[in-house]
Simulated scan of single mutants.
Amino acid sequence: MAIVQTFLELTNFASPLKQTIIPCIITAYAIQIAVAIPSIIYQSDRFFDASGLFTFFIINLLSLYLPAIRTKYADNNLGNVADAVKEGAKAVAAGTPLAISYNWRQLALSGAVAIWSVRLGVYLLRRILREGHDHRFTEIRVNPKRYLRAFIGQATWVIFSMLPIMAVNAIPSGVRSVHYTKPTDFSGFALWTFGFILECVADYQKAKWQQEKRDKIHDEKFLTSGLWSVVQFPNYLGETMLWIGLCSAVFGVLICNDVREALTAPDSSPMSVISILFFCTIGPAFVTLLTLKVTGVPYAEKKYNRLYGDDKKYQKWKRETPKFLPIPPKQH
């Protein structure tokens, strides 16, 4: 508990927002570096993706519980947590942060991130364990500096994506606006649900197609059926949509005056609208940039072009199927 107490004291800023976000940033980079060290030593990429989703899960929980821990166990009273756990579940429920009353929006947003991270983490871990390695890292995993940068980049991805969730979880209890349902809640969670389902179905269809190919049920070279006949990368589209949905729901509450005031230090001005826009757009923008320009679509296209570039069916599918948005491409 001494380490935790020291950690809380070092990050005990006057701003509730900084009290939550800075410890989460430190934790995200610490987790990724901890996984990077053995991965670099053994030149293994088995746990790269899984470690990223695990970091999402941990940062999500930390941002949710950290404000309650600071409030309930201030004044060097963190030892009560361990004592309560030893006394049993009843004592835990009455004397730990689990007894804090959270706003429904905090639980819903954190729950959405938890569901997404666990689902995708299990899917990616099963895939890498089955295939043995990730072709994306064939060249960089033998270069320690480049491989470390990949883990650092992954931590940055987690932080940027989680900024709006961390901001909502940092809102002190008693702020009135967080209790009211807003139009952005309906539109945001609806978009998250649609994006999540789209990503799940796309991953399921791809996994099923790959398994049937291994079982020699078909001999198709590449997947062009189901959602993959509508857009070339439906899983990436779903990923982008669900993060835009979460950020939309967050924007509706962060823009409220009492929330903007509550997240800053007592002697500071309320968060500016520009800051709110930054918090609610940097995550989806970063995810979209990675997907379309860095690790997602460019890598897949390079791989497919190398393997199937001369295939007329592939050329037709690539020419006639929208890449990302279900908008028919212009015919030349």
Rank of each mutant, 00 (worst) to 15 (best):
E239L: 07
L242P: 01
W243R: 08
W243C: 05
I244F: 12
I244P: 02
L246D: 06
C247K: 05
S248M: 12
S248N: 11
S248R: 09
A249G: 07
A249M: 04
A249D: 03
V250D: 09
F251I: 03
F251T: 05
G252T: 02
V253H: 11
L254P: 04
I255Y: 08
N257D: 14
D258A: 08
D258L: 01
D258Q: 07
R260C: 06
E261C: 09
L263E: 12
L263S: 12
T264K: 14
P266W: 08
P266D: 09
D267M: 09
D267R: 13
P270T: 09
S272E: 03
S272W: 01
I274L: 13
S275F: 09
I276M: 00
L277E: 01
F278Q: 02
F279N: 07
C280H: 00
T281I: 05
T281S: 15
I282C: 12
G283P: 07
A285E: 01
A285T: 07
F286M: 09
F286C: 04
V287I: 15
T288F: 08
T288A: 06
L289T: 06
L290I: 09
L290Y: 00
L290G: 00
L290K: 00
T291S: 05
L292D: 00
K293P: 05
T295E: 06
G296E: 02
Y299F: 15
A300Q: 15
E301K: 14
E301Q: 12
K302A: 15
K303S: 13
K303W: 11
N305I: 06
N305S: 14
L307N: 14
L307W: 13
Y308S: 12
Y308M: 08
Y308A: 10
D310H: 09
D310W: 02
K312T: 14
K313E: 15
Q315G: 05
K316E: 14
W317D: 07
W317E: 01
K318A: 10
K318S: 13
R319G: 02
R319K: 15
